[in-house]
Write a protein that binds this DNA or RNA. Structure first.
Lengths: 210, 210
DNA sequence: GCCGGTAAGTTACCACGAGTAAGTTACCTT
DNA sequence: AAGGTAACTTACTCGTGGTAACTTACCGGC
C-alpha cells in the first residue's frame, strides 16, 4: 500500500513558519554546517527546492531564523527594562531577562551565536540594537560623558553579557548570580572592592589557584 | 617549454610553516568557508593532499592556525602585564597589548573570531586562558571575593575586551581610548558617575589620551 | 659513483551537499 | 466542469572536502 499522504498543499505563510521551526531545530541539533537542506526539508515533510523558493539559500534560511529570534529577544528584554524606574534597575532587569530568554531557547541560540561567521551581519545588528539601547540608559546615569564614551561603555556591557550567558550555562551559575556579577563591576567598580590599602591579599582558603 | 620548476622538496617543519602562513592569509581574505583547500595549496605551490598529510583536515588546519596565533597572543599580553606592579596597571597594560596585537594581525583575527563555529573549542581555550589569568589579577584586588564571583568578573572582562576590540577598529577608536573605557566601568564603576552635573568618571591624569 | 629506501609529492578519483531547470499536480476561481 | 496558477517533485549539475595508489627527489651506505 502507498503510505504517502496524497501530497497536501499548504499556504505560504504557514509553510514558512513550519520551515523556520524545522530549520531552528535541525541547526540546533547538528549545527549550521552539519545540517543539510535535505534534513530540514525532510523534517517539514517536503523536498528541498521548496526551501529555496521560500528563502533563497541556506544562508537566507539562517538569517530568517535569526531575524525571528531577534524580534523575540528585543521584545522580552525591552519589556523587562521598561518595568523598572532607575537606570540601574533597568540594566539589571534587562540583563536578567536576556539570560533567561537565552536559556529558554538554549539550543537554538548556542548555535546561532557560535555560527557567527555565517550569521555575520545579522548578529551584529542585534548587538547594535542592544548597544544603542544600553548607551541610552547610561546617558541618563552619566550625563557628563560624551557619546563615544557612552558607546564604548555600552559595548563593554554587551560583550560582557554575551560571554556571561555562555559561561553561566556551562558553569551552572544562575541568571541572578550572573546578573549580580555584571552589576558588581559595571556599577560599583573594583576600586572599592579592595580591603583597603592596609589589607594584604589574605587567602580565605576557599579559593584554590587555577 | 616546460615552465614548471623541477619539483623541489622541502623539509617537514618548513613546509608546515609555509602552509600555516598561506592558510592564515587565504582564510583572512575569503573567510574559512569561502576558502578552498586547493586555494591554500596553490598559494604554497603544492597540491591538496600535502595539506592533508600535514594537518589531517580543513578543520585541523584552522585549529593549527589558531594554536600558533594563540601562543603569540598569550606571550604578548602576559609580557605586558608582567611589566606592571599593581593589579590595576596589569589589567590596563594587558588589555592595551591585547588590542594592539589584534590590530597588528587584524585580517587573520577577524576571521578566526568570527569563525567561532568551526574554531569552537580552540577559541574557548584561549578565553579560558584569559579568564584564569584575569581572575588571578582580580583575586589580589578583591581578596574577599569567592572563586565563582572572581570567575564571573573575569568573564565580564574577557567578553568586554572581545567586543571592544571589534568595535574600536570599526569605529576608529584608539587602543588607549578603548582601554580607558573598559577601566572606567570595571575599576571605577558607574555609581559615582551619577551625581555631579560636572563630573564624568574622574581620570587620574597619568594616562593621557593619544 | 651508484643504488636502494623512505619521505615528499602528484594524479585521478569518490562522496556528498548546495543549488537549479523543467515538468507535475492540487487547489481556487468563474 | 474547465483551466489558471502557485505549490511541489524529480532529476540533474557543479564545486569542494577528502582519499587511494602511484611517482620521484633526496640521503645514506657500499
Amino acid at each position: 500500500m502507498d503510505t504517502r499522504a496524497p501530497r497536501r498543499r499548504v499556504g505560504r505563510a504557514e509553510r514558512e513558519r513550519q520551515i523556520l521551526d524545522a530549520a531552528l531545530a535541525v541547526f540546533g541539533e547538528r549545527g549550521y554546517q552539519g545540517a543539510s537542506m535535505d534534513q530540514v526539508a525532510e523534517r517539514v515533510g517536503v523536498t528541498k527546492p521548496v526551501l529555496y523558493t521560500h528563502f533563497g539559500s541556506k544562508h537566507g534560511l539562517l538569517l530568517a531564523c535569526i531575524a525571528r529570534a531577534r524580534a523575540e529577544l528585543l521584545e522580552v528584554t525591552s519589556a523587562a527594562a521598561a518595568a523598572a524606574s532607575t537606570p540601574e534597575e533597568m540594566l539589571r532587569r534587562g540583563t536578567l531577562a536576556f539570560f533567561e530568554y537565552l536559556e529558554s531557547r538554549a539550543p537554538e541560540w548556542t548555535v546561532l551565536y557560535s555560527e557567527s561567521a555565517v550569521a555575520g551581519e545579522s548578529l551584529e545588528e542585534i548587538r547594535a540594537q542592544q548597544t544603542d539601547f544600553i548607551a541610552g540608559l547610561l546617558a541618563t546615569q552619566a550625563p557628563g560623558a560624551d557619546a563615544q564614551r557612552l558607546t564604548g561603555w555600552a559595548n563593554v556591557i554587551v560583550g560582557a553579557c554575551e560571554r556571561l550567558a555562555l559561561w553561566r550555562t556551562r558553569a551552572g551559575v544562575s541568571s541572578e548570580q550572573a546578573t549580580e556579577y555584571l552589576m558588581d563591576l559595571v556599577w560599583s567598580g573594583l576600586a572599592g572592592a579592595a580591603g583597603g590599602p592596609s589589607s594584604p591579599p589574605e587567602r580565605t582558603g576557599d579559593n584554590p589557584p587555577s
